[in-house]
Amino acid sequence: MDTFTIRELKSTDAQALLAFETRNREWFESHIDARDPSFYTWQGVAEHIEGYLSGFALGTWHPFVIEDSSERIVGRANLKGIDPSTRSAEVGYRIGRDACGKGLATQALKHLIEEAQGRWQLTQLVAYVFKDNVGSRKVLGRCGFVLEQPSSNEASEAECRFVRGLVPDPNAR
């Protein structure tokens, strides 16, 4: 059985992250919006990482990578838009095509929930998913997220909004 590790993104991850994103580009673009082509260069990924780590230092992002037993990046997971005033954040994750079906998205999302409750003391998480992304919708449901019905003037034809309430960990760091 494969073992996987979830750890914080590091500035030294540029080459490994570029390889992961390039290897899975077509797969991801079939499920989510395409990235700008300039992202798929060493400089593009290095700037991407720098932006995420700057956000982490400011307390607005918490980026993670998922590695297999060979320390190869096979997925990503992020808390983004962390807002201490509303005690909320958005979750995002992407699992490489070769690593799908192994429970990694669920494991990653559970990790994000734990970090949101423990480290960040958040009370709500939000996820946006394309309506036809059945796999992510199942993962969100499995992890306690509930589909929020949009008001008539907010209805998006392509995306669904899922929410999950949290109880912050009183013994957190």
Rank of each mutant, 00 (worst) to 15 (best):
E148I: 01
Q107W: 03
R173V: 11
A34Y: 11
C100L: 05
F56K: 15
S54A: 15
T106H: 10
H111W: 10
V126I: 14
R142K: 15
G103F: 06
W61E: 15
S151W: 06
G165Q: 06
F64T: 09
N153H: 13
L147Y: 15
L140H: 02
A77K: 03
E71Q: 15
G103Q: 10
A105G: 13
S136Y: 08
K138A: 13
L9A: 04
S152T: 09
F39I: 08
A127S: 02
I95F: 09
E115P: 01
V134T: 13
Q43Y: 03
F20H: 10
Q43F: 03
Y128L: 04
P170A: 04
E29Y: 04
L79N: 07
L104Q: 10
Y128I: 01
N153M: 08
R87I: 00
F39R: 11
L58G: 14
T12H: 11
S69G: 11
V134Y: 11
V45L: 07
L79H: 06
Y40I: 06
R94F: 14
T60M: 07
F130Q: 11
T5A: 09
V65Q: 08
E148R: 05
D83S: 10
I49F: 05
R173E: 12
E21V: 07
R72E: 14
S152D: 10
E148Y: 04
W61F: 14
G81Y: 02
H111M: 04
Q107S: 09
I49E: 07
I66K: 08
G75S: 07
L125Y: 00
L122P: 04
H111I: 01
K138L: 10
A34Q: 12
P84Q: 01
A108Q: 08
A172M: 02
D169E: 10
S152Q: 09
E90N: 02
H62K: 09
M1C: 05
L140I: 01
A57W: 02
E47C: 08
L18N: 05
G96R: 13
S30Q: 14
M1K: 13
L79E: 05
T123H: 11
E67Y: 05
R119P: 00
P63M: 02
G103I: 08
G51Y: 03
I66D: 07
G103E: 12
I49M: 06
L9M: 15
D132Q: 14
